[in-house]
Computed example of a mutant assay.
Amino acid sequence: MDLYSEQMAELRELAGSRDVPAVVALRARIVLWSAEGRRRKDIAQLAGVAPLTVDRCKARYGERGVAGLEDKRRGGPRTQVPPRARARVIALTRMSPPADSGLSRWSTRTLADHLKRREGISVSWHYVARIWREENLKPHRSGTFKISKDPAFAEKVADVVGLYLAPPVGAVVLSVDEKTQVQALDRTQPVLPVTFAATEKRTHDYVRHGTTNLFAALNVTTSEVLGECKPTRNGANFLAFLKKAVKPHAGKEIHIVLDNLSTHTTPDVKAWLAKNPNVHFHFTPVGSSWLNQIETWFGIITRQSIRSSTFSSVNILVKQIRDYINSWNENAKPFTWTATADEILAKVRLVQTSVKKLVNSNSK
């Protein structure tokens, strides 16, 4: 399940839960209706609130997630949950689930169920979710990178992380990749008629007017982004974009972090590299695109600009992407990479050990 699906699932649980105040459930429904593409005035009418209330709910969710839907806590007694319960929620969240549970990671419901069955502590899934938000615990994002089988995994991690933590003096480090098949979804048409144009396809009950491929290069030092949309992803388009990405840095040593796509190693690309010895490729390990900083930026533009918007054509989608990049570059702030190669490798070894224990326990 991707992050967007998890967010929608959590909102649906809030909207139908008896464990939360009615006002919180209503706010969750307002955000869900907005995500469905309903008009502001229609949502206000359905919820029985003023249009400004709809705007406030959306803004609070956009800023703080589900926590923004709850009222700020005033003075007075808190819910009477034993301190031990809170401590156990935090402690278990920071550990992998027991091998005999068959779980690879905790969810709010599985953790609440585990506490009740194994430790006699009865708390709701909503209580667990609130503790996670208050303590900034995100188990759905930890340990989710897949274990690479690249024989040069350690060397490649050290190479790429070294560029992030200590880039060569006077050199430029670019993080490059392509976000493929970005869809121009028209969310104002959630239900299609029986017949529709041959150029339109149904995707999650919305009309899709086509797709584009976003080529992007992030300057690791400044976080500025160069982006270009192309109708197809191939070696020729990648090379054309690559030439454009390095042009502003002529005369400097240029280090480019990228993954192992076949379009990145075509004969034409290799020939161009041979003619430009100041440009150096640094490949992330196979199956480890999470190591490429541009992936972080792809996640940001998806959440903030693409996922919740409506596009009646590919041209409108491309224009919005360009506008977002221009706006981003006006106030670009570099990402802070803190994990060392040794820390990453230690975590991978820990995950590998946990997987082996789980496999061994299941084979008994």
Results as ranks from 00 to 15, higher is better:
3 L>F: 11
3 L>D: 14
9 A>M: 13
12 R>D: 12
13 E>S: 12
18 R>S: 13
20 V>A: 04
25 A>T: 06
29 R>F: 05
29 R>E: 13
29 R>S: 11
37 G>F: 04
43 I>Q: 07
48 G>S: 08
54 V>C: 12
63 E>D: 15
67 A>P: 04
68 G>K: 03
69 L>E: 09
77 P>I: 02
79 T>G: 12
87 A>Q: 15
93 T>L: 07
107 S>D: 09
107 S>R: 10
107 S>H: 06
113 D>Q: 13
132 W>L: 01
133 R>S: 03
145 F>E: 06
151 P>K: 05
157 V>L: 01
161 V>S: 01
162 G>T: 07
163 L>G: 00
170 G>Q: 04
175 S>L: 08
190 P>E: 14
200 E>Q: 13
202 R>Y: 07
206 Y>N: 06
206 Y>E: 03
213 N>A: 10
224 E>F: 05
227 G>D: 09
229 C>A: 14
249 H>C: 07
251 G>R: 05
257 V>H: 01
259 D>K: 09
262 S>H: 11
264 H>Q: 09
272 W>N: 03
275 K>F: 05
285 P>L: 04
286 V>P: 01
288 S>E: 00
296 T>E: 12
308 S>V: 02
314 V>C: 05
320 Q>N: 11
326 N>F: 09
350 L>E: 15
359 V>E: 13
359 V>Q: 12
361 S>I: 02
362 N>G: 12
